[in-house]
Write a protein that binds this DNA or RNA. Structure first.
Length: 261
DNA sequence: GACGCAATATGAGCGGGTAG
DNA sequence: CTACCCGCTCATATTGCGTC
């Protein structure tokens, strides 16, 4: 494949829109965090690369040095080229990315073309009947009927514990509130993981009290929307959207406070 | 808690190639 | 010649784990 204008790679995009791509990335990051697929530095690499995919969703042919340099400018936590390359290799292994080597007109190697894959692709490839964490698979709710306590895996109770068995890593106030709506330890832990990702994204990870309060308010708001029938697809992405909004407000407020000082 | 060891992650630097 | 791209290797730093 030859180097050229980015527009010529439009057909490689697996996403309909930037929003679609961003949603997929959130789910990939969640999956990566849960399965510990990448180190913190490697996550920075993936996030840095994803920022170079704005023109065509999920497609980037940015040069490695530019991407690496951006991690020092924007995130203040820079990574090296070697780390970036190792991160990309891992991502190719578990299916997040496809990499195509681009060549110049004379055949010599040029930069790479990075093609992000939708989150569900990995499960299609492994032909699993029931993916363990198919997060962006729409979970349709019957209109105005909240089936929050439905146990879909009655045949395997050992893998689907009740809310009482939620891990201690989930703060008690959040666990108790979530348990009144979701009788599933796995689901509550999944919700809290989303809180951690959103908090991390908006630099609120080191403020446990703010994180907890924001999580509780967001959960209340999302459940309210669910009961009012505003959520047509799945609850988790909606909850994450509320979290992002709340943490963003908090982040902007902190920013204003810093400017005032 | 302190220590030692092994595994893993990381960054720097090298060489091969082309463009200007 | 300089600047830039890539892949690759290797020394060092960090992390995890077992033992005392």
């Amino acid at each position: 494949m030859q180097q050229g204008n980015l527009d010529q790679f439009q057909s490689y995009s697996q996403f309909n829109s930037l929003k679609d791509f961003n949603n997929s990335m959130e789910q990939w990051l969640l999956h990566i965090k849960q399965e510990k697929l990448l180190t913190p530095s490697q996550v920075i690499a993936v996030k840095a690369l994803s920022k170079w995919c704005a023109k065509i969703p999920g497609i980037s042919n940015a040069r490695i040095c530019k991407i690496v340099a951006s991690t020092w400018l924007n995130d203040k936590i820079g990574i090296s080229r070697s780390t970036f390359k190792r991160a990309i290799s891992k991502c190719v292994e578990f299916g997040l990315l496809e990499v195509h080597n681009l060549s110049r007109k004379n055949g010599s190697q040029s930069s790479n073309l990075y093609v992000f894959q939708p989150f569900t692709t990995i499960y299609d490839k492994t032909k699993q009947n029931e993916p363990p964490k198919q997060l962006n698979q729409p979970q349709y709710y019957e209109s105005n009927t909240i089936k929050l306590n439905t146990n879909k895996r009655k045949n395997n109770p050992e893998t689907d514990l009740a809310a009482d068995f939620t891990s201690d890593s989930v703060p008690k106030p959040f666990k108790e509130l979530a348990a009144s709506f979701f009788n599933s330890a796995k689901r509550i832990e999944g919700l809290w993981t989303r809180v951690e990702i959103a908090a991390w994204k908006y630099l609120c990870d080191d403020k446990p009290q703010d994180k907890l309060e924001t999580a509780i308010v967001s959960l209340q708001q999302a459940v309210r929307s669910l009961k009012l029938g505003k959520i047509k697809l799945s609850f988790e992405p909606y909850f994450y959207g509320v979290l992002e909004c709340k943490f963003n407000e908090l982040f902007l407020a902190d920013l204003n406070n810093l400017q005032d000082e």
